[in-house]
Design a protein around this nucleic acid. Sequence first.
DNA 1: ATATCTGCAAATTGTTTGCTGACGA
DNA 2: TCGTCAGCAAACAATTTGCAGATAT
Lengths: 142, 142
Amino acid sequence: MEREKEILRTHIAGHHMKQTRQREVILEAFLKAGGHVSAEELYYKVSKRASSIGLATVYRTLGLLCECGIAQQREFGEGRTRFEIVHEYHQHHDHLICTKCGKIIEFENPNIERLQEKVAKDNDFTVYTHKLEIYGLCSECK
Amino acid sequence: MEREKEILRTHIAGHHMKQTRQREVILEAFLKAGGHVSAEELYYKVSKRASSIGLATVYRTLGLLCECGIAQQREFGEGRTRFEIVHEYHQHHDHLICTKCGKIIEFENPNIERLQEKVAKDNDFTVYTHKLEIYGLCSECK
DNA sequence: ATATCTGCAAATTGTTTGCTGACGA
DNA sequence: TCGTCAGCAAACAATTTGCAGATAT
């Protein structure tokens, strides 16, 4: 929480941008939501809590959070983009997605990562990033 | 090719739908394109080859092809949906995507599949499907 | 004959942008 | 003060839908 605020502050300072109330509110709401929110969902939370912050501002601020490494975009096949928190000590993680209730579970698996590296190497590919999503029913929905 | 035409014909017959020239043309163009096309790209190919088939028809037909298992949707983080061919003897495959030239390489890796199953089991999850995409530079682009 | 298609244009959805007044440094 | 920001509405892009005439069965 404090860490992220600090990151944002530093990024803003270093890019002749300005610290604004809206940016603070949106960042707080985003962190409080725990990630995996869409822009519209976050807009909703933010609107409820406070003033008349526009959807465009939410989009712009989420873009900003991605730029400074606090958030990251993901598309799960739903048409809309979701944003998740980049945790400090977490390394890359992947997702289990319940197709019924929409719950998203994160997991990390170094073995899978290693096999992916191998596949890339076999194909003479330089990996930038990857994503793995497993769709199905969670324990509660099946 | 013939196999896919047959599947489509059977599906149409079994759903009181109608065999039309457009559907044939679109299926042929889709197969000939070899998959990984977007609706608009396919529309383009189809338009060139023949008559005034509308974009909406391409969308509707691609939906139909997905329903009868000939095609499958994928979203690579570009905003638009791509459609790929479901091959008869291929089992599930994943993708290496070159972020520079856009080339898509398919691969299969049973070990990764197995590890995914394990992750799902550990989380008490019933898997429907999954997707794995590795983004980076291909041999020619790096 | 009749129900399903098609093409077109209009509607939707998610997201971005231009503009003008507001505001932080 | 001055440049960046916010809110709003309009613009956009990808996809879907409604409608009226066309066409398989």
